[in-house]
Write a protein that binds this DNA or RNA. Structure first.
Length: 720
DNA sequence: CTGGCCAAGCCACGTCCGTT
DNA sequence: AACGGACGTGGCTTGGCCAG
């Protein structure tokens, strides 16, 4: 089944009780209590001092990393010009625009500049020193993908970074959840509506990729990977070699950025072979370089296994945008031409390539090549000949005199590798930093903004929101955290929220052959009346019981429970976390899209035993939830069930749990979920391999206090 | 031992359909 | 006609499982 929050700007909290055999508890994953969106509560742990070194008001200050206001020099610029290389403990700096870049990020840019008495650091400083990447060299050959060209090999022995990048992350989810300019979990080009916002330079380099002028000019093959095999109607089809890449959506978007002069953010990962420093030493997997402009875009023929032997690939030249200081990865001494003065070999970048030496900054316009055949202009890229670089032209990639294709080995035309005229950032591109999340007058801390990641102003690390109560920097040596105060909300605050739906309680696809039985009344306690709707699944696969919580007595009790959950989350006795998934396809760890807490037997699928507390240590709210679910099932269904696990899940706005089954080994045949807070949908569909209709078979709206019981092993066996 | 297949979550995008 | 939400599909990724 899958569950999603029905309303917007709400958070939810869910707890599920499941029954597992005593023998071997393996994970299970259903049953939850959803609670209201707006009321969301946040579990906080006041005992942890996440506000250390950072007051709430400070934390709310916008802190641009790359300041493009020319009247304000960035820290980098100041350093570059020899001003303000103060080495005060960064904790004492006011949190100004300059703080971020002149603080720890660049503190040990030049280790020789650090006064001797700085060796005696305060405790707090020790952490920050830990943040600095150690010096030394790293053998990078093992990281070089096969087929890398010669230039890549020259960078295999790369010095370590001497400081953390202003924005970096250990895994891709952290980048995508924190950095608005790159939200693509898979592709290397992030674009929306044909506008590219971010471009990832990764391990799949191409011949003649370049990293020049200290990274102010970068040449990379365009979006799209090597050969591409497309599947059409179940068959694998090799796409026609001709204009494969120009049809690529990401290439089209990149070309549009080029035409319209839109900047984009460049991101590198640790497999990018041309970056002159090694990111690997301190778990820097991804680092944001900064804003770049596409200054050249052209097509090339590339040899391929595909029929015809050649495919069209697009190449792009990116140039550093002015107004964001100098690139962060070079010591300021280098900018001043003093790079030899400190004699510190470890901080020196590798030898320049021949082409870099030849390249002198130029402000002249690049003279294009005019094609006689098609009349279009192309840049004069390679020494071996000016050629037409329009794939539609019959003279594409052919030398004009001989009509021969360009040779395999090519050398860049000298002038082509010069820096273009300076590229200035347009308005609206002031900062790459994510906007700060601010306190809301209604005390809601579960809106979508609160699900986004955290960019640490101390060490630059981007972190996912992994705990319900606050943000925490994932850098082990940093310890920075940030919390926005939240309120406890009552369930009836969410009553006004409606979810758009064509059904009131449930919906059954006629093709799935399930039978809805008549509404039945039952007795709650001695006087209360409850109602239950039962759906009988076909072929004896089991039952789905929807126990409604529409009597006053039932509502009172679940509202009290809802409050208990929020209080426990706030006082830290119940910690909701997002746990890494065991099975996923993204690089690095991938956290679930909801927060959870497990009690009883371990839930292996998410978190495993780490995510599980024994009953003796379970928060009272969890025990109460378990007791309530068991009692209500007894009253409504006449079944006596002892659940041996309660998984409590908390959802913020738009968070949800994907389709899954609760068929872990050791799980019993009954899994029940209690929803608290805002309404939520729960969907069931046939599992793969079943011959039944695809698509959602049965849906429920679960409102505050509703309990859904999945009764029978067949439910888990055939549905998800 | 190897190669093929599958997984969960997310985004981009196409289509359908209802509303403006 | 234009817009936008709902829904479905495809693609991406990488380690583990399983059949050959």
């Amino acid at each position: 089944m899958s569950r999603s929050n029905g309303s917007s700007s709400v958070g939810q909290l869910t707890a599920h009780g499941r029954w597992k055999s005593r023998a071997k508890p393996l994970g299970s994953r259903d049953a939850r209590i959803d609670h209201d969106p707006n009321t969301q509560t946040i579990a906080g742990s006041p005992s942890t001092d996440w506000l250390t070194n950072m007051s709430a008001s400070q934390a709310l200050q916008p802190v641009p990393l790359w300041n493009n206001d020319p009247s304000k020099k960035t820290a980098v610029e100041q350093l570059n010009h020899g001003a303000s290389v103060k080495q005060e403990p960064f904790e004492e700096h006011p949190l100004t625009d300059d703080y971020c870049t002149s603080g720890p990020l660049f503190k040990s840019m030049d280790m020789d500049d650090v006064p001797a008495d700085q060796g005696k650091v305060k405790d707090a400083d020790v952490d920050m020193n830990d943040l600095l990447v150690g010096q030394g060299m790293v053998k990078g050959t093992e990281r070089s993908p096969k087929g890398r060209d010669e230039e890549a090999k020259t960078t295999t022995d790369r010095p370590l970074l001497t400081r953390y990048p202003p924005m970096w992350a250990e895994n891709r989810q952290e980048v995508c959840e924190t950095f608005d300019w790159f939200r693509s979990y898979q592709g290397g080009v992030y674009f929306t509506k044909e506008i590219v916002k971010g471009y990832l330079l990764g391990g799949f380099g191409a011949k003649r990729d370049k990293f020049l002028h200290d990274g102010r000019l970068i040449i990379s093959h365009g979006g799209g990977k090597a050969e591409s095999v497309h599947s059409e109607k179940g068959r694998s089809v090799m796409k026609e070699a001709g204009n494969q890449q120009s049809d690529d959506k990401s290439v089209r978007a990149l070309l549009k950025n080029f035409r319209e002069g839109r900047p984009l953010a460049l991101v590198i990962d640790d497999k990018y072979p041309l970056f002159p420093f090694s990111l690997a030493s301190k778990n820097v997997t991804y680092a944001v370089l900064g804003f770049y402009m596409i200054v050249h875009a052209w097509a090339e023929y590339e040899n391929a296994k595909a029929e015809g032997g050649r495919i069209v690939k697009y190449k792009f030249a990116f140039q550093w945008c002015e107004g964001q200081g100098a690139p962060w990865w070079f010591p300021p001494t280098r900018e001043k031409g003093l790079d030899s003065s400190n004699g510190d070999i470890d901080t020196k970048p590798p030898e320049k390539s021949e082409e870099v030496d030849l390249a002198v900054e130029s402000t002249s316009d690049f003279v294009p090549f005019h094609c006689n055949a098609c009349g279009e202009k192309s840049p004069y890229v390679y020494k071996e000949g000016p050629v037409c670089l329009m794939p539609s032209c019959p003279m594409f990639w052919r030398v004009q005199k001989t009509s021969e294709y360009l040779p395999e080995e090519l050398t860049y035309h000298k002038e082509f590798l010069l820096l273009h005229k300076p590229c200035y950032l347009p308005l609206g591109y002031e900062t790459l930093r994510p906007p700060p999340v601010t306190e809301r007058p209604d005390g809601i801390t579960t809106s979508e903004a609160f699900t986004r990641g955290f960019h640490c102003t101390k060490c630059g690390r981007m972190s996912c929101r992994s705990e319900w109560s606050h943000w925490k920097c994932n850098n082990p040596g940093c310890g920075n955290s940030y919390r926005v105060p939240s309120k406890i909300h009552r369930a009836n605050e969410f009553c006004f929220q409606q979810i758009s739906s064509k059904f009131i309680y449930d919906w059954i696809d006629s093709k799935c052959k399930a039978i809805r039985k008549p509404l039945r009344n039952f007795t709650i306690g001695t006087t209360g009346i409850g109602q239950v709707l039962t759906i009988e699944l076909p072929r004896n696969r089991g039952f789905l019981h929807h126990i409604l919580s529409n009597s006053i007595k039932a509502k009172e009790e679940v509202s009290q429970l809802f409050k208990e959950y929020q209080e426990a989350a706030n006082d830290g006795s119940l910690v909701f976390r997002r746990w890494p998934m065991r099975m996923h396809k993204c690089r690095g760890s991938l956290l679930t899209n909801y927060f959870s807490h497990n009690a009883g037997v371990p839930y292996n699928y998410v978190g495993g035993s780490e995510n599980t507390v024994p009953w003796a240590k379970a928060p009272a709210a969890v025990l109460h939830a378990r007791e309530l679910i068991q009692r209500r099932i007894r009253e409504a269904l006449g079944k006596e069930i002892q659940f041996n696990e309660v998984l409590s899940a908390a959802y913020m706005e738009r968070q949800k749990m994907a389709f899954h089954t609760d068929d872990e080994k050791g799980l019993g045949s009954v899994v029940a979920g209690l929803s608290l807070g805002s309404p939520a949908f729960m969907h069931f569909r046939m599992r793969k391999g079943q011959n039944d209709e695809k698509g959602i078979a049965i849906s429920f709206i679960l409102r505050h206090g509703d309990i859904l019981v999945m009764d029978g092993a067949g439910v888990q066996k055939y549905y998800e």
